[in-house]
Design a protein around this nucleic acid. Structure first.
Lengths: 211, 211
DNA sequence: CGAATTATTGAGAGCAATCAACTGATGTGG
DNA sequence: CCACATCAGTTGATTGCTCTCAATAATTCG
């Protein structure tokens, strides 16, 4: 866990969340931010018809709920992908820290700037890549965020529904494309775990000429 | 212009940019940030085949190039939509200000947080809305950013190419949909100017049930 | 006035969403 | 133990939208 994040981790109000539990919900008043201690969390935003887009996947050490710093209500929801623990930092405590520790404030600002760059990259991908490419993106992103364990399998249980939610497509489309990838031996699926066997081929199959 | 931005505007190194001129370019080393004094600027990001996505439209008072704070090179380009003036703030000066003025640093951080929220909203729209809805978004966004002058026309010259670039679609598709909107008397076009006559109907025609 | 660029329009193809059907696993009541 | 229901996972067919390409019209510019 990056050192700077320990500044806010001093306040050890650790909360536990069962798989599927909500850390916070879109529209609720902002009470503070969370620092993920263990587990995995998805941040998502609703749309019509029960559709939603997964904004990002958060791993151990990541900050959650910081979007709320700009307003009074959370613009997104956060749901545990597996049993997780998170350190909760209340707004008053955060305020005090921001006022007292200017280095921390600057580091947090740079963290925001970096998040913004990622968001822009993702905006571009969502707008210009076609669905296959976005699904590939989702897989690569999951691996980048959570890493791989034994057998090179991605270290988090993901449903096809989640992949669809991240790629901005439907369950069925994800299903069909994953099947193609499995048949081509580019990836391997076992239960809720996925293993990327040939990342290069994966990218190539999405013909999405990268920047 | 918001007061707080004047903190960095003290340094009056005002630069002029002709319509179409680049303020900075994707991939170039970051030299500083810009504060737009007059005119209008688009921020865009390249992709394959000469395609690009317009990340945002900036109006007078907006900050440009701040994404670069997180890295050494600009992740995006900025191009003047019309003759513009921008106050350039070099990195060293910005560094000094950030170190000295902590209130400014905090305000800038909150600005980032707000930008992040906007980016997420846009991510969701780009991923889940269909093309018509995204074009409508583009029009409404342009009006929100630049406002309207006499005749209620949006106060900036926009090409259909730019609308396509913002909506993540093609020139022809924008052309055809705008024609439908004009025929339905929802909007009005005159040269490079656009006027939204019936915003409600515009939203409805995109069937995109809003949040 | 001719050339080159840009605007406009139509036809066609391809992709992905939707819908519907099927499979198999699990559970429930008789 | 079996018949039935339920539900998630899986697959195919269809439809509609949007991109691409191409052809024509209009405009700018030399």
């Amino acid at each position: 866990m990056p050192e700077w994040k320990e500044v806010i981790a001093v306040k050890k109000t650790t909360l536990r969340f069962r798989k599927g539990a909500l850390l916070f919900k879109e529209g609720e008043p902002v009470k503070g931010i969370y620092l993920l201690y263990s587990g995995a969390v998805k941040v998502h935003k609703k749309w019509a018809d029960g559709k939603e887009l997964i904004i990002r996947f958060a791993a151990v050490g990541d900050i959650l709920g910081h979007r709320g710093l700009a307003g009074d209500i959370y613009p997104v929801s956060a749901t545990a992908l597996e049993d997780s623990k998170a350190c909760f930092v209340s707004n008053p405590f955060l305020e005090t820290t921001l006022r007292a520790d200017h280095v921390f404030t600057r580091t947090l600002m740079q963290f925001y700037a970096a998040e913004l760059q990622k968001a822009e990259l993702r905006m571009r991908n969502l707008a210009l890549m076609e669905v296959k490419g976005r699904i590939a993106e989702a897989l690569l992103e999951l691996q980048a965020v959570y890493g791989t364990g034994k057998n090179k399998f991605i270290r988090v249980p993901v449903t096809r529904q989640d992949i669809a939610g991240y790629a901005g497509t439907t369950y069925e489309t994800v299903f069909k494309f994953l099947k193609i990838l499995v048949d081509a031996k580019v990836i391997q699926v076992s239960g809720k775990s996925i293993c990327i066997r040939q990342p290069g081929k994966l990218v190539k199959m999405c013909d999405s000429s990268r920047e």
